[in-house]
Amino acid sequence: MIEVADGVYAIRHEELDLTTGLVVGDEQCLVIDTPGDHVQGAALADKIMTVTDKPWQVVYTHNHFDHWYGTGPFMPCEVWANENFRFDPEERMTWVQRYLDDGKPGLATAMEESELVTPTRTFTAEAEIDLGGRKVVLRHFGPAHSFCDTVIEVPDTRSVFAGDLVEHPHYIEDSFGDGDVTRWPAALEALLALDPVVVVPGHGDPVDAEFVAGQREVLIAGWPSAR
């Protein structure tokens, strides 16, 4: 667990090099994404309880399995996502088979057994969550990596959780997702306009604004029409 700012944490996971997050306020905390199955989700919940015993809410950065299938152990709680969030049942079947083919039956079984928790609260373009003494802002900048990308801003620390809009190192070149890659650079431009000091990606270690700007250029180079 990496404390990127006061009460703001990036939590690293071995599987898929995933990065989840935690923001702690005076009264509540916000969990940003959960891993890809209930076993990993329970481990994350246990880790968070070593940091805080405050009640939590959960927010999904997008609808790809590795960012929300592990929410079951956190229930009951409010679960936030962009209004375009949708469950794709084929994704679960695809990844169960992939884990079996890769000789990882434990991960396949855990995924099959996981209770999938869809959002209880949705928003269109922007929403605020009051954690008590700390405000967190959820923002949707349009389709990019997915059609429901959510950026989580913690204004008092100038830290931002980007989900898979940003990945470190440049996995982004191989993970165009199912959104609209031509609008991805614009989403990163909007993220940069928040003037973040630290950006927590969906995979990999935390980065700075300069890294995000470089990733935007990678996308533009691959899709010149996105400039």
Rank of each mutant, 00 (worst) to 15 (best):
L188N: 03
D156A: 12
V160T: 01
T157N: 07
V166E: 12
D174P: 05
D164F: 13
G177T: 11
P169M: 02
Y171R: 13
P185T: 08
R158F: 07
R158Y: 13
H170P: 12
L192P: 01
H168M: 07
D164S: 11
S175A: 14
F176L: 12
A190N: 14
L194Y: 06
S159A: 11
L192W: 05
D178M: 11
D178I: 14
I172S: 10
L188I: 01
V181I: 14
P155V: 06
V154L: 00
G163Q: 02
E167H: 03
L188D: 04
Y171M: 08
R183T: 13
A193F: 05
R158I: 01
V166T: 09
D156T: 10
A162R: 02
A190C: 12
P169F: 06
F161W: 04
L188W: 05
P185Q: 08
A186T: 13
P155D: 10
R183A: 11
D174Q: 15
R183Y: 01
F176S: 06
V166H: 03
L165I: 06
G163R: 06
R183L: 11
S159N: 05
S159E: 01
G163W: 02
P185Y: 02
A190T: 05
A162P: 00
R183Q: 13
D178V: 12
G179Q: 01
D178F: 14
D156H: 07
R183C: 10
S175T: 12
L194H: 04
W184C: 10
S175L: 13
